[in-house]
Write a protein that binds this DNA or RNA. Structure first.
Length: 114
RNA sequence: UGAGCGGGCCGAACGACCGCGGGCACAAGGCGAAAGCCUGUGCGUGAGGAAAGUCCGGGCUCCACAGGGCAAGGAUAACGGGUAACGCCCGCCAGGGGUGACCCUCGGACAAGUGCAACAGAGAUAUACCGCCGGCGGCUUUGUCUGCCGGUAAGGGUGGAAAAGUGAGGUAAGAGCUCACUCGUCGCGUGGAGACACGUGGACGCUGUAAACUCUAUCCGGAGCAACACCGUGGGAGGACACAUGGCCGGCCCGGCCGUCCUCAGGAGGUGGCUUGAACCUGCCGGUAACGGCAGGUCUAGAUAGAUGGUCGUUUUCAACAGAACCCGGCUUACAGGCCCACUCACACA
RNA sequence: GCCGGUGUGAUGGAAUGGUAGACGUAGCGGAUUCAAAAUCCGCCGAUGGCAACAUCGUGUGGGUUCGAGUCCCACCACCGGCA
């Protein structure tokens, strides 16, 4: 994954939580905000409340895979933070993908399909 | 065959496509003075038996002391060995459990001193409440009566514990008061490397508690890779130079700030620390074993918002507990399912 | 990743190894009041029981002790600190 496409700093996350737009469903919460780059920058939050390390890793890897396979559908130029909620622990990949894309659609992050 | 007991090992596998971390090589392009960086292609590599809990022991780093001792605080605790070290492991002893294989035990000292032992009970570390016995008295009652003084730990009930146990002698009644046997502690002798075992009338009979203080023996300086070392933006403090010009505050003078260099502290961020090690595999030798020695071979993650996922096919059943973060040795806890070895008991067969 | 701390009725919080829940807050019942507040009295952990009472109860499981909320060991949950 390109390092320019990841959010790292705590301050970036704080800015999105306080000033970004958000969308919620049982699997994820998505925050987003325009940035000045030509690419999207993604950050993932999976807290210890969701489970132990193996569970958290699985959720984060699936979220990252969902974005990788669907990246062509996204509009460029946004900072995006994806926060996993507790329902995403037991969810299948397909359900998680549907939930993620649903939330992004609410925010208007996806390209308008023909 | 069934039931069991002890130990060891594995921890889904293979294939296809897309994708990720690290390494090596390649050469095309871009940036750059260069070193190099980015993109690309190929090869090879990429979590565990517990990676977990952070409970012990070490390495490593910094701080302190720099030699030795004492005190304080903490840890350990039969004995012998293994180990870099350990609170771990092996063997063994004692005690306990099991028909047995085998298992369990925080297993020094209360016989150095101090403390504590609620309630119950007459009495709790020594005790006469009831009882038993003797003496001296008392009497409307001469008793299976009663008062006083004394002896007595056999019997009673309470308690976790009542002062070795059983029997006999003895006595007014009794008592390790005496004797026999037994039990325990200390001493002595023999065996053993030792814990210990066996013997022994030589002495003694002593409540429990040290996961109470304490004593004895041994060990321990403190903090932790978010340690620590280096580079270092902006801003800060001190000193030196300049005090010319210019700018800002100010009506002007005076005054303050803005400059350059050096030093100091600090530390956004970055680099190192970072993986070859008390390492692993195979064989031989020594040892009951833990383990040790020798020879040959192997290189086996190193990230930094933190690399293993998705889709599909086959095998049986779509698999448990679970993810490295400086590194090792252990312990503890979690765990679907499976394999192997040794042994025990019961039954059957030869 | 490392280091440290805390768990007791609904709740805050006491309890020297010796009857567990002192003392508050909240709750329930009663008195007082036309009614409420305040005040006073009583109850107040769970289960069974009409009651008397019995059993279990200090995060969980073991151990030491005659006896553990307390002492020791292991685990669980929660909280805090270190860039």
């Amino acid at each position: 994954m390109d390092s320019r496409c990841t959010l790292k700093k705590n301050s970036d996350f704080r800015r999105l939580y306080s000033k970004g737009q958000s969308a919620v469903n049982p699997y994820v919460v998505v925050y987003c905000r325009r940035n000045r780059e030509k690419v999207n920058r993604l950050g993932y939050t999976v807290s210890t409340k969701l489970g132990h390390a193996v569970v958290r890793n699985r959720v984060r890897r699936r979220l990252r895979e969902i974005y990788r396979l669907n990246a062509h559908k996204f509009k460029p130029g946004y900072d995006i933070v994806v926060v996993a909620r507790s329902r995403s622990v037991g969810a299948s990949y397909q359900k998680l993908e549907a939930g993620f894309l649903n939330a992004c659609g609410k925010l208007g992050l996806l390209e308008e399909r023909l």
